[in-house]
Amino acid sequence: MFEAKLTEGLILKKIVESIKDIVTDVNIDISPSGISLQAMDSSHVALVSLNLSMDGFEHYRADTNMVLGVSIANLAKVMKLADNNDQITLQADQEATHLKIIFENPKTERTTEFNLNLITIDSEHLAIPETEYSSVVTINSGEFSKICKELFSLSETVQITTNTDYVQFSVEGEVGSGQVRLGHNDSEKKEDQTILEVSESVQQQFAIRYLNMFNKASTLSSFTRLCLHQEQPLVVEFKIDNLGVLKYFLAPKISD
């Protein structure tokens, strides 16, 4: 038996909205300690990794480990039934054929229940090694989204360069070439800070369209954390306060 209740159901709505354009069918791993999922996009260029801790739920019970195969596209449709201030409860029996989703609004006395049919997916699971990232950039999530959108109109590819003084996003295309350079900014307004932790410079190229899809998650956190290592995929991380973390992994482009 699995049951989890989230008072702020809006968070779950946002999480589903943040991953639905990247992954289609996912296996949701339920354990007594929390909920996690890992899935790649169809081209295996990007990977979504979500980890939610049981502590972040108003009520959480999972007697055993379970795997719930879910079509994210269908889950997104069901989530549309939820109002932004609904409480959301997820329920599934052992060997369940469906996931029961309940939206409750205690104020308006409105309750919505939906049994989402589960699917069987033989998705491959990747072992993601613990990596010591030599560059970690913490940037305002809205600002990073804006930079990616604006640069995307100038080029499909962005080159990210880090060093101890700045992080630089540069593009080159038939329009011309240029870069956005952000230095360390510890402004008193915390959410405007840009924090650079660089032990080794990194220079890699990435497809901006994936970054734009990842940035859908900027509604979940006021900060985006970029973790870079010269030989490793980029990690774009959004911390979900009191609940967990949503991470996106993106393979670099290799200039031939």
């Binding site: 295996h44 200039s255 031939d256």
Partner: peptide, 14 residues
Amino acid sequence: IELQGTLKSFFEEM
């Protein structure tokens, strides 16, 4: 030109 890598060249399948 830049070639897009995939994650499978970085992470082992379990």
